[in-house]
């Protein structure tokens, strides 16, 4: 376990010493603050609209951080050849995969909770409401979803050599699931036969990232989701994360790494 944490520690150190990460991070924070600072709110509708926009920004930004950071981990180790002195030590490839996952997930989590913190400050100071429970739940669910995404990207990065292809493919898949994944079963019903079964199957076998989107609960201040639902969703995320990590390990385990 210490070995996994050691690998994760290096991921996090690299991230906070890189400039591109700061750029994205600061940009999101500033935009959130700026949106909140605009002073024409007494109109419910506009307030909601701005809140919605801020949350969308947080979603896109967190996804970008997660995907870009994760996609380059293993390829960068191979390209810079740092993987060799590492694997020459008593560490298994499974531990390396687990460490990379943990590092990316923790780093993304820190970024995410800071984003939500800003968001809470802004809306709190404007509207004088502090639904901390709703925020925590929304952030937690989003973080759980990001675990699935990070594990999936890690898997992709083992099969596609170039981080750029992993980035593009991951982004398309994630956006696709978020936008249409939840409607596939409905779409299926309106299709003619072979297509109907195919779409229904696709609906059943994809990880449903869109379930983790609690933005409407925050925007419309709908209160918290039952804890049981959150627990189930967390379990579901853990299972998918485990599956992707297992597949990633399986691909990495038998790779020839030649010096």
């Amino acid at each position: 376990m210490n070995k996994i944490f050691a690998v994760a520690g290096v991921v996090i150190k690299e991230l906070y010493r890189r400039k591109d990460f700061y750029v994205l991070f600061v940009l999101t924070a500033v935009l959130t603050l700026a949106a909140g600072a605009v002073n024409f709110f007494h109109d419910e509708k506009i307030i909601r609209y701005v809140k919605d926009l801020c949350l969308l920004l947080i979603w896109v930004s967190a996804l970008l951080v997660a995907i870009i950071t994760t996609a380059r981990q293993i390829p960068a180790e191979r390209e810079a050849r740092t993987i060799f002195p590492l694997l020459a030590k008593p560490v298994s490839r499974a531990q390396v995969i687990a460490g990379k996952f943990l590092g990316c997930w923790l780093a993304t989590g820190v970024a995410l909770f800071i984003f939500y913190f800003f968001f809470a400050i802004i809306t709190g100071s404007r509207e004088h409401i502090w639904p901390v429970g709703v925020y925590l739940e929304a952030a937690w669910m989003q973080w759980a979803m990001l675990a699935i995404v990070i594990a999936m990207v890690l898997l992709g990065s083992i099969y596609f050599a170039a981080p750029s292809s992993t980035n593009v493919i991951s982004f398309i898949v994630v956006a696709g699931i978020l936008l249409v994944g939840g409607h596939l079963n409905a779409i299926a019903l309106s299709q003619p036969e072979p297509m109907q079964t195919v779409l229904a199957w696709v609906y059943f076998v994809i990880p449903h990232l869109e379930w983790y989107d609690l933005r409407d609960f925050v925007v419309y201040d709908l209160g918290t989701v039952p804890a049981r639902a959150v627990a189930l969703a967390t379990l579901y995320a853990a299972v998918w994360t485990g599956i992707f990590l297992l597949l990633a390990w399986f691909g990495f385990r038998r790779k020839n790494l030649t010096t």
Partner: peptide, 24 residues
């Protein structure tokens, strides 16, 4: 290794500390 490449963003001390952790 024949050619040496290490995590460039770490200091020498951090690098050694990292490997020491791997060795327990």
């Amino acid at each position: 290794p024949e050619l040496t490449y290490y995590y460039k963003f770490l200091t020498a001390e951090e690098l050694l500390r990292f490997y020491a952790k791997i060795f327990g």
